[in-house]
Amino acid sequence: MTEIFGVPIQALFGQLMLGLVNGSFYAVLSLGLAVIFGMLNIINFAHGALYMTGAMLAWIGLEYLGIGYWWMLVLAPICVGLIGIAIERLMLQWLYKLDHLYGLLLTFGLALMIEGLFRDLYGVAGQPYSIPEEFAGAFNLGFMFLPKYRAWIIVASLTVCLATWYVIEKTRLGAYLRAATENPKLTQAFGINVPLMVMLTYGFGVGLAGFAGVLAAPASQVGPLMGSNLIIVVFAVVVIGGMGSILGSVVTGLGLGIIEGMTKVFWPEASATVVFMIMAVVLMFRPAGLFGREK
């Protein structure tokens, strides 16, 4: 069998595939963060908690209301989006004129409260959520055994990322959004309702987090800690990709997923830190991130 650095090439392909799966989550989550930061200048620390909320809602829907996976894949992001809109209207909108730090502290506090609430209600061990029947089983790719559900994660998240990119870069609505980001006062002067757009953007951004949460529910345990385990890495992804850069966050998300997967083969103990090492190096040479523009 061919080997690279003492690792069979087949095992390497397997790890590449898994890296792509994890990278898909990073991509969707960092995309939401990037959109929010680009538009609102808010560093949304509640993103992880809202991702967890998406997964919990999927579980609650199935457990108490008998609503299946497919419906929840649509409903949960909408619910999370509505929660986001409420947060934006009631709290965040008062902070736009202040330093970034205030938004960060507010959303961090919110994250702790949301997590605490679910922890109190359901405990930390988490709830099982079974894989939808359509995706039970696995593909035998020859070099690995790829569960169908993991393949679906890649397809679904790439589709969402692509659609978001298309809407923002190629449609009229996207053009308004970008204009409002660039110069809110001027855009308002042209008769565009900027506060409404800001509100919808935040709702959409956290809705993406809710979507990732539902995607993650069958693949891992649905529990209150699932968001905080992931969010720090996602922040690193956003920083590496460049704050506010949409394409950057998607590409870096996938790329870092793969690098992390490779690290798990060659040096498993470092797999939790490798992303931060890359972040440190990138910040030294390109402080605005790989795809970011310095203002």
Binding site: A11, Q15, S220, M226, L230, P268, S271
Partner: peptide, 20 residues
């Protein structure tokens, strides 16, 4: 054997090594 960080969010890579 393989050592994973405490509270690892994803175990599939480690299990693939166990499988191999």
């Amino acid at each position: 054997g393989v050592r994973h960080p405490l509270n690892a969010s994803d175990f599939s890579s480690f299990l693939l090594q166990a499988q191999a």
